[in-house]
């Protein structure tokens, strides 16, 4: 725990040095907001509802999309990219040598502070969307939402860890980042609009459904107890698989020094 706190502190101090990055992020967040909202405006210019979702509810989806995207982009992705780069260049040696659990260490080494801005934008969109939809949220629903958000976070983390671990065998997988991002874009819309095979992919291969759609379903009274339990089960499963994968993968690592 102390290690995590320490690494976070160092990363934050590091990020605070580069204030231009802040403005670059402001612009980037603004642009993705334009794309997301513009898309909604054009779609709802032609229809009243999309697969049973109203425009206000879809705004809430976009809100959660931003929250989760911000969390992934600031907390998970930077460390995982650093990990892949380290594997490729053979500099992972330095991390393995340290006396803490290597998986823990490589997972918290780097954060991108300014990406958290998206989380703020997402919360604003979510609140506006839910108010417009006139949703009355019970404490239970809110609780389910938070639990689903955390479960989604753990699933995405495990997914990223598995992907990064693949680098132990395939070395050059820098395109994976693009794959994830383009698949994650699919989360801007409720996964039910996609053809069945794509729904399956977005649920189990790239866990966008659990990261975005399921938490929103919890807030809009669409979540069934079954998918709640399913999400919990998948979280445990993914985390275990990620751990096992990592243990096997790190044995394949041969380093590049000496």
């Amino acid at each position: 725990m102390r290690v995590i706190a320490l690494y976070f502190k160092v990363s934050i101090l590091n990020e605070l040095q580069y204030r231009v990055n802040f403005f670059v992020q402001v612009l980037q967040s603004f642009l993705s907001l334009v794309v997301a909202l513009g898309g909604l405006v054009i779609v709802f210019d032609h229809t009243e509802s999309l697969n049973g979702w109203t425009s206000a509810e879809l705004l809430a989806v976009v809100g959660v999309y931003f929250i989760v995207g911000g969390l992934i982009g600031s907390l998970i992705q930077p460390s995982m990219q650093m990990l892949m780069e380290d594997i490729r260049q053979g500099t992972l040696d330095f991390a393995i040598l340290k006396p803490v659990d290597t998986q823990l260490l490589v997972s918290v080494r780097q954060i991108q502070l300014w990406r958290l801005m998206d989380v703020g934008i997402g919360i604003v969109l979510l609140v506006i969307g839910l108010t417009q939809a006139g949703a009355e949220i019970t404490v239970l629903e809110l609780l389910a939402f938070v639990v689903m958000l955390i479960a989604g976070g753990i699933i995405v983390y495990s997914f990223w860890l598995i992907l990064a671990t693949i680098a132990f065998w395939f070395i050059r997988i820098d395109n994976i980042l693009q794959v994830f991002q383009s698949m994650y874009e699919a989360g801007r819309w409720p996964v039910r609009i996609y053809p069945p095979w794509l729904q399956f992919m977005l649920t189990f291969l790239v866990p966008v459904a659990f990261a975005v759609t399921v938490p929103v379903e919890a807030l809009t009274g669409r979540l069934t107890p079954l998918s709640f339990l399913g999400a919990i089960a998948l979280t445990v499963l993914m985390f275990t698989v990620g751990r096992v994968f990592w243990t096997i993968g790190i044995r394949a690592y041969s380093g590049a020094s000496a």
Binding site: R172, I173, N175, S182
Partner: peptide
Amino acid sequence: YRVSTAFWILSLVAEPIVYMSV
């Protein structure tokens, strides 16, 4: 770099499928 190329193509196909579905 076949794996890399395959991933690159995957990243390009997601977008039109999303739009198409919408």
